[in-house]
Design a protein around this nucleic acid. Sequence first.
DNA 1: CTGGTTTAGGACTCTTTTGTCTTTATTATA
DNA 2: TATAATAAAGACAAAAGAGTCCTAAACCAG
Lengths: 154, 154
Amino acid sequence: MLSRRCTYGLQAALFLASQERGAYIPIQRISECLGLSFHFLTKVLQHLTHHGLLRSLRGPHGGVALARPPGQITLKEIVVAIDGPDLFEACVLGLPGCGEQKPCPLHEDWKEVRGCLRNAFAGTTLAMLVAEPERLAAWQACWTTSPDAASAHS
Amino acid sequence: MLSRRCTYGLQAALFLASQERGAYIPIQRISECLGLSFHFLTKVLQHLTHHGLLRSLRGPHGGVALARPPGQITLKEIVVAIDGPDLFEACVLGLPGCGEQKPCPLHEDWKEVRGCLRNAFAGTTLAMLVAEPERLAAWQACWTTSPDAASAHS
DNA sequence: CTGGTTTAGGACTCTTTTGTCTTTATTATA
DNA sequence: TATAATAAAGACAAAAGAGTCCTAAACCAG
């Protein structure tokens, strides 16, 4: 469904949304908390920075931060930045010419499912996923290491 | 969303559903009509045969045929046979422990989308996609070569 | 200005997916 | 029985995805 790069990007964005607003967080710390490869995550986040979804700062006290308030960043933006728009636009059967003029037999049915998908991703912001204390706790429970433990270790 | 193997499998199954009921069709002909690589398609269809979704027969007048009436084969069966059940079961964020006991922040929202996906694939049979003359024509328009032209050529 | 910290960028490896080719086994027909 | 047609099976090549590593550039603190 989503590439691994994409799930890493979403996880990191969600992580940043759950941290102090606007703070630069080192990628090293994100990778440790989420249990992801540091170097690989670095590439994914560089990609998001190029697409204007993240800001970055080098040097001590540097790191990455959300470029906009988490309430203004949707999951769809992140997915499209990493995996491209195919998930929300391409033919399910992978037929090259499929479209309104030359619809495949699944075209009309799939339009509905695609709408469902698009609504889910475009209608969900990062803020929505960490606003309720319940969800925030659920998210933090997914981390392999707590950020406090990670910062205490340094 | 779906692997290429999977889209090839779906296309071939749909092709068989639009042919004379129960007839063995050579893979060569399928690949020519759909414009797919013969050898690669062969592998995909062997896979579907192993999973009991197709029957096959070697030798002259051999080929592959649907193992059951097209009204009793759903798209979901084909997808699961080729790509596995992940699309309909796994966590969107790719979190290993995500489930009812330890839900990720998207878990509940995603359950709905997943249901939408599952309904679409499990609720659609091959027969439904070729029953209406309109859809059948749309499907045949997707072929690069007509089966008549292909058979006339031999 | 120096040294440590952090992102940026590129080269490289490993794995999976995609695709090709060759050989073998099976079947129908003449 | 001989021949041609066809799926089955496996070896191989090419491309993309995933992941590692190293060097450079930027930044901050002393």
